[in-house]
């Protein structure tokens, strides 16, 4: 089932660190030589075609992983304490072959591919991330889905001695997330095990995490230890903390505001102090692929 979806963002849309700095240098050089005015327009046009590049540094130093603290840099500072080997994922509920699946066993069964996705946080910032991983559908099929299954719930590791942020009751631990089964089986939905072709750093949810690119980032639960197939809609952490602000679906939708801020536009990270805001796209730009999942649903009600 791998390769069911092909990138329309090419590898060129992800700028490697070297290229990123190289381009900066070229632009800076042009500015210095006074040529910037002459070439500025074409440089801007090129910028418009390709998505704003995000670097390894961007993706790995700016994370929301509240188990390690609520500051954006807390996870990169404190997540190294987390033991990710050995690792196993308990898959249970309405599956044919329940049990503990070791990370190595999972990896030996899966086809790893690269997916370059937009990543939109509910806090109205965004990045572009080159993930490596496999389709969640493949993992669920490995466990075998029973007929009555309608939802999938996920749980993050909860190990207080390795997770300093869990001493604060910011959320009810362990972190929980959930998807409807058709969302989970969608070709875009993946389990990431790496970024930029390297193993996932702990702060980004090592050793494996969910990535659902058309939903707000908090749905893409990190460091998963448990997957349960159920016939009822599972409880999800942010929804439990504040149901009014964080719905079960939480699809990226510029027309439905968060009660405390607008979702109509986003700050694209990596552009520095004077980066221009960008309009947020319906379903984060994946409308063509996923809109049919919600046909007939009032998206303001099922937010």
């Amino acid at each position: 089932m791998a390769h069911r979806w092909k990138n329309n963002l090419s590898a060129d849309d992800v700028t490697s660190e070297a290229l990123f700095w190289n381009r900066r240098k070229i632009l800076a050089g042009l500015a210095g030589s006074g040529l910037a005015a002459a070439t500025g327009q074409s440089a801007q046009a090129a910028e418009g075609e390709a998505l704003t590049p995000n670097t390894w540094e961007d993706v790995t130093s700016y994370c929301n992983f509240y188990e390690f603290g609520t500051g954006k840099s807390d996870p990169s500072l404190f997540a190294r304490k987390m033991t990710t080997s050995p690792w196993s994922v308990e898959i249970d509920g309405l599956v044919e072959r329940p049990g503990a699946y070791s990370f190595e066993d999972i990896m030996s069964e899966m086809t790893i591919e690269e997916r370059i996705y937009r990543f939109r946080c509910v806090e109205a910032w965004s990045m572009v991330v080159p993930w490596n991983g496999f389709e969640l559908a493949d993992l669920l099929n490995l466990a075998g889905i029973q007929d009555g299954a309608k939802y999938v719930s996920f749980e993050t590791l909860y190990r207080p001695q390795e997770m300093p942020g869990t001493v604060y009751p910011v959320l009810e631990w362990p972190y929980r997330e959930g998807l409807r089964l058709d969302e989970a089986m969608h070709p875009l939905t993946m389990m990431a095990t790496g970024i930029f072709g390297k193993p996932l750093p702990n702060q980004n949810g090592a050793p494996l995490r969910l990535v659902v690119p058309w939903k707000y980032g908090f749905k893409s639960i990190k460091s998963i230890v448990k997957i349960t197939l159920t016939d009822t809609q599972p409880e999800t952490s942010w929804n439990m903390a504040n149901a009014r602000e964080y719905g079960f679906y939480s699809n990226v939708n510029p027309n439905v505001d968060h009660p405390r801020w607008s979702q109509g536009s986003e700050r694209v990270l990596g552009g520095g102090l004077f980066a221009k805001r960008q309009d947020t796209l319906m379903f984060n730009g994946y409308e063509e692929e996923v809109a049919h999942l919600y046909e007939g649903m009032d998206l303001a009600k099922f937010n």
Partner: peptide, 18 residues
């Protein structure tokens, strides 16, 4: 702080940081 924001000293999201 503004200088740090300009020169990358405030991390990936200097606007929010400042």
């Amino acid at each position: 702080l503004f200088y740090l924001g300009l020169t990358g000293g405030l991390g990936v999201d200097p606007v929010k940081a400042i």
